[in-house]
Each structure stands twice: as structure tokens, then as C-alpha cells.
Design a protein around this nucleic acid. Sequence first.
DNA 1: TTTCAATACGTTATAGCATAACACTGCCGC
DNA 2: GCGGCAGTGTTATGCTATAACGTATTGAAA
Lengths: 138, 138
Amino acid sequence: MAHVHEVPADLTRNQGLVLGALNRSSGPLSAYDILDRLREDGLRAPLQVYRALDKLVERGLAHRLESLNAFVACADEHCHRKGLIAFAICEGCGKVDEFADAVIEERLGNWAGAKGFKVERTTMEIRGKCAECLKLAA
Amino acid sequence: MAHVHEVPADLTRNQGLVLGALNRSSGPLSAYDILDRLREDGLRAPLQVYRALDKLVERGLAHRLESLNAFVACADEHCHRKGLIAFAICEGCGKVDEFADAVIEERLGNWAGAKGFKVERTTMEIRGKCAECLKLAA
DNA sequence: TTTCAATACGTTATAGCATAACACTGCCGC
DNA sequence: GCGGCAGTGTTATGCTATAACGTATTGAAA
């Protein structure tokens, strides 16, 4: 658990629980992982989790990792990120690093402009091994 | 169906069938879509399709679209692409455009180098609307 | 040529991810 | 009050992916 967000006050109970579970986790969680961790808090069905996740992702408090079918809490301290976010996912320890790159965003914008393609959402995920895991393996 | 590959001669029967189905399709297909289209050719179980897809993706003849849980035939005429490939997926018509960008690849490489992260695989998928669908909607 | 390893194939069963459909609740504005 | 909206709870279901087993084919080494 690296950084933990201030949890916004206007979240509903379920949204707060789900975000809490994500914040307490050191890595990505699937919706069913989250459900398992929140059974004692009264959650019973996947849909309760998915609905909360939808809202959290919509507000940028959580991100979906498409290549894992899993979710992470947003790691940006101030949640100010508007544009493209890239994720580096370590296959060793499962940790996820989140970063933004204006140049990449610009290149994509150029490509889209040239093609007349209207970008709505971009997912960018790097799979590999983090420095720490590489050190351990050596 | 835009461009169709020369199908390599050393594919197995199932691999050839699956690649054929992908080539005949104008858009991405899920493994189960493929299975449905190949039942008359004797395929019966998802695993037969997944196994073929694994090999095709490994050889670069097909790509997996993580954000769709679906697959497309490689659209590069000569299958020479080594590095990062980006996909632009139209939410309107479902068509997928495939492109590469050396600058993006370089930026990612820089980030990874600085972090000591060893990149194994990158997925980059843009969702939005293609020029044609935008025109229709106007 | 026998034997071994590697690769592909076929099948059943099961695990894991996600949503449809319906009913109910609580809040807020009019 | 009442009408709309967002959130909730529940059951059932559908889609995506793999485990675990056994068989078949091939090709090279002994």
C-alpha cells in the first residue's frame, strides 16, 4: 500500500467500501476479489461491486486494467489527471505503476487528427518486470 | 474485409481455420464468435479455438484486443512489425485500425529505462469513433 | 526401427468475469 | 404529496478462459 487517498465524503456506502478495499491492497483486485474482502461488510453480489466500480472509474478514483480484468485505486495524489494514463504492471509482484506522458498523448492526438478519428478513451498497459523483481531474480 | 494475408502453409488445420475466420471478418471476433463460425468445419470446444489463437498471436498473425476480449487478424501486409502496435477501435462500426509509432515506443522505452522496468509486452488501444461513423452521425 | 519427446488434437468439466431484469428505498425539487 | 433519480439488494444468466485428462502424429536420436 503506497499512497492512500483521502476518500471523498460524498461517496455512497458501497462506493466507499470498494474504494477502501482498493486502497488497502498492494496490487490490482478483480471485482470478485473485492467482493470476497467485503462480505463481512455486508456485500453479497458481484453487481454491488461492479456498480460501485463504475462510479469510481467514472470519477477517476479508480482505474480498470483491461489486460488483467482488474482494478486499482488511482495513485495520483491529487487526482488531477485528465488525459491519458499509462500503467506498468509487474508480472512478478503484481504491483502497478501509473504514469502520464504528454508526448505520447500528443502523438496519439496527431494520429487521430490525421485519420479523423475521435478519441474517447485510451488504455495503455505495459507488462513486464519491475526493477525490484529483476534484482531478486538475478 | 480489408486486406487478407497470404496464409502461411505451415499452419495446422485448426490454426488455419481460425485465421481464416478472422480474415473473413470485417471486425474483431471473440473466441466464441470464432467457434460459432467454425462449427461446420468440425470445431466443437472453446479450447480448440483458444489454442489456435495462442499460436497465431505468438507468431504475430493475429492480435488480441484486451479491451474487447476479442481478436483480429494482423493487418500489416508483411507482418514485419516487431514493436509496439496501437489499435484504434471504432465504437460505431467496430472496425479496428492498426498502427505503429516509433516516438511512442521510444518514450515508453525511456520511461522503462529510467525506472529499471523490463518491458515484455505493451497493449495500447484507443476507443472512439472513426471518421466514417462521425460523418454518418452528423 | 524402436523409442522418446514434442506438439497438436479432442472432450468434459469447471473457474472467473460481467450483466440483465426486477423490485424496493431514500432523497430532493416542485 | 408526488415524481424523478440515483443507489441498493437479489436472483438468474451469459460470456470468457482454463484445468485436467487422454489420444494422435511427427520427427529425431539411439
